[in-house]
Design a binder for these strands. Structure first.
Lengths: 232, 232
DNA sequence: CGGGGTCTTGACCGTCATCAAGTTGTGTGG
DNA sequence: CCACACAACTTGATGACGGTCAAGACCCCG
């Protein structure tokens, strides 16, 4: 188990949604940290629920596999975000979760979290707020056209990675296939749209390194579909 | 304002997710009840957030309107369910909400809810559980085929209306257009799929009265995708 | 009994899935 | 460090599903 109080840990922790609470609790919240390599499973569908996970680096996807073996991605979870709330109601995990890229997560026992809440009411509101925020994600993805969906996906990514509008270059952590499964499109379509966006000078992309060249243009495409995907 | 303690009110209240808490709080939770007729607005996008609403009859939809005037439905909320949690994070409502059919709602001041929680910790877990449950809704709707989406929609409806598998006849509260906007399809497609499902003896539907004749068949479609016609 | 909204059905056409082949990237072992 | 193998990605050709337009039937409410 990693040293939870090392300076390196603290630096990744600053992004975490629970940072202030975790800190005041002297990290008793975090029972352990885990390093996952690409494609490594965090938990499996129907595993019983004990932990909330905080992503400290990388990204996690939750997904199902249908009878034809097709993977269907429910959500991506990025650095600083919390994962596992969907299991509270059922008491088991309704999806499997794997890392889409090398990742680190903190394991937070749900019982500890509840205990801390009873001592700290403001954490309660904070948690509800965080959970509430999740309702805003993953919308707009039912938009009609493939281009629209991808534009919305990019905007959500920019938003959730807390990128400044001056520095819109970043690393797509997941594969084209992951994006395709998330958006309900074919990987070929993802490819084609990316190249089209690049030809039109809206983005530049090489491998997983992407840079938004024309944010307004992307927003326009997204908004042709949906007004106010701009929490941005 | 309706008499909150009348027997008729109490009977609709039994279905409510907050029934036990509301009852022990002598209904101080509910500041007022409101009757909405079809298409009546409950609140508008960007209204400031003060209330959680409990649906006691009918159904509410939350939606956006895009630049082309196209409505896009985010979620339906059915009898007994709670509405408004998506506003906690932003402190304003991220969508507009209207009744898709004649409906009744209870207005619950969020401040009251928080106050009650501080006195009653088990309500806290209950609430998190309810919110957690919402993550399970509205999935599978990005499935490939229109038939799949509609099958998933029907299954979710059966689940959320708490229908027994012996009595699968019920009232579709919303219009074909609402369903279309929810699933990201054209209303004509909804129509066509319904008639196809009826021809294949999977459902019977007349106007908004629908009956599931072959639950296993619907589940099959939902999970596996479109059967080719030789299967019928 | 109208009249407007909702629903159904048909014809046509565009977008995207599918299949297939080729290219590039990545990781492993010699 | 290179060679090889496999995965990931790109690009093209083709066809099906579902969107769009249009017309007609049906339902509900005054």
């Amino acid at each position: 188990m990693a040293d939870l109080n090392s300076t390196t840990v603290q630096s990744v922790c600053r992004k975490c949604a629970l940072f202030t609470f975790c800190e005041t609790a002297d990290r008793s919240l975090v029972s352990s940290r885990k390093t996952l390599h690409r494609k490594e499973l965090l938990y499996t569908y129907h595993d019983s629920f004990h932990f909330i996970y905080a992503i400290s680096s990388g990204a996690i996807k939750t997904f199902q596999v249908d009878l034809e073996g097709q993977e269907r991605i429910h959500q991506f979870y990025y650095c600083g975000e919390l994962l596992g709330f969907d299991a509270i109601h059922t008491q088991y995990h309704p999806f499997s979760a794997t890392a889409v890229a090398p990742s680190q997560v903190c394991r937070i026992p749900y019982s500890e979290l509840l205990a801390l809440i009873s001592k700290n009411p403001s954490l309660y509101e904070k948690l509800l707020s965080l959970v509430s925020q999740r309702f805003h994600f993953g919308l707009n993805l039912m938009s009609n056209s493939a281009e629209q969906r991808i534009a919305c996906f990019l905007l959500e990514l920019i938003n959730r990675l807390h990128l400044q509008s001056e520095a819109l270059g970043f690393e797509l952590l997941m594969s084209r296939q992951d994006i395709a499964h998330y958006l309900g499109l074919a990987t070929e379509t993802i490819s084609r749209v990316f190249t089209r966006l690049q030809q039109n000078q809206l983005i530049s992309i090489v491998n997983k390194r992407i840079k938004i060249l024309d944010l307004a243009g992307i927003q326009w495409i997204a908004q042709k579909g949906v007004r106010d995907s701009s929490d941005y």
